[in-house]
Write a protein that binds this DNA or RNA. Structure first.
Length: 300
DNA sequence: AAAGCAGTCAACCGCCTCAAT
DNA sequence: AATTGAGGCGGTTGACTGCTT
């Protein structure tokens, strides 16, 4: 049992769009704007399903669509974001201006999924068999780079409305870890012994002792502040994401550029934008921070 | 030259979410 | 609180193109 079709399919055109149809759609949206997709086709004189019109506009006709090959930088970003978000193509596309979710999804399935190997849940068994059979030398501009161990990475399902806690693992020295913080931060305390490494169940109880606070600031940013000196020296630390209305999706969709600038400006020991800086590093900078999402707790 | 294979990507399908009623 | 419908999303399909044999 599914929902009834969004519109009657009788008498509607299907398949590839013609230039005439494209023009009709563009002209209509230019005058009336986007939205009201279901009522758009008859108004625009199109014999198409409203959903089809929406898709055509979003994936092809929008003026801000970026054409051309995915660049190496974009590819790197897609890989990072996919590691973090999974098959949340629209979210990934949201971080790549001018690219559509459909385009990124296609690019992933035709290029990147092969390299990542079995990570993509998009591929069905049939598809994987198909792809394996059809595989030949990769037409990659740059040499395929080894993808970080993804089995140890847990995809963040941002669909969850309330993501309460996430655990990071920093494979960094104390010095480097300290370096990620605000310049004025005090030197971290000695690294705790391995018994303090927080993993799985036991870590939850110790969270409150070693984490700082994460909160949404008035300007919509998110900040992390250590609750005490030396917290950054932990190999693992947890971040409490249970911050009221704020959810991880909002955080990931926030303005990372601003966040980074803010964290650089901030010289206050008690109020560093540490977490945005960290996430920015994870998503946009380099590979030096090999971070795992060890665990997340999401309320259903 | 032609047939078959491999790869790409636009478009469709069906389910989900959420706001309006 | 329950229902409905529009919009949105991810998975999948199939037409098309280019390459290989």
């Amino acid at each position: 049992m599914g929902r009834s079709p969004c519109c009657s399919k009788e008498g509607l055109n299907r398949g590839a769009w013609t230039s005439t149809e494209d023009k009709l759609l563009k002209d209509y949206i230019r005058v009336h704007g986007e939205g009201k997709w279901r009522s758009l086709p008859p108004r625009a004189g199109l014999k198409r399903c409203g959903k089809s019109c929406r898709l055509r506009w979003l994936n092809y006709l929008r003026p801000d669509i970026k054409r051309g090959n995915i660049t190496h930088d974009e590819e790197e970003l897609i890989i990072r974001l996919h590691k973090l978000l999974g098959n949340r193509w629209s979210l990934i596309a949201g971080r790549l201006p001018g690219r559509t979710d459909n385009e990124i999804k296609n690019y992933w399935n035709t290029n990147l999924a092969k390299r990542v190997g079995g990570q993509s849940s998009t591929c069905t068994e049939k598809q994987l068999t198909h792809q394996t059979k059809r595989r030949k030398v990769l037409p990659i501009k740059a040499q395929p780079q080894p993808i970080p161990d993804t089995k140890s990475s847990v995809v963040v399902r941002t669909k969850a409305t309330k993501c309460t806690k996430s655990f990071f693992h920093l494979q960094k020295s104390e010095k480097d870890s300290y370096g990620m913080c605000s310049n004025n931060y005090p030197k971290p305390n000695p690294r705790p012994d391995s018994d303090n490494i927080m993993t799985s169940e036991s870590s939850r109880t110790s969270l409150s002792e070693c984490k700082g606070g994460l909160w949404s600031e008035p300007h919509g940013m998110v900040s992390f502040s250590p609750s005490r000196e030396g917290d950054y020296s932990l190999d693992h630390f947890g971040i409490d994401l249970d911050v009221g209305e704020l959810c991880l999706t909002e955080f990931l969709c926030s303005d990372f550029q601003r966040l980074t600038e803010e964290s650089h400006k901030n010289n206050d020991d008690n109020n560093s934008s540490f977490l945005p800086c960290l996430v920015n590093q994870l998503l946009f900078r380099d590979d030096q921070y090999d971070t795992k999402w060890i665990e997340e707790q999401c309320e259903p």
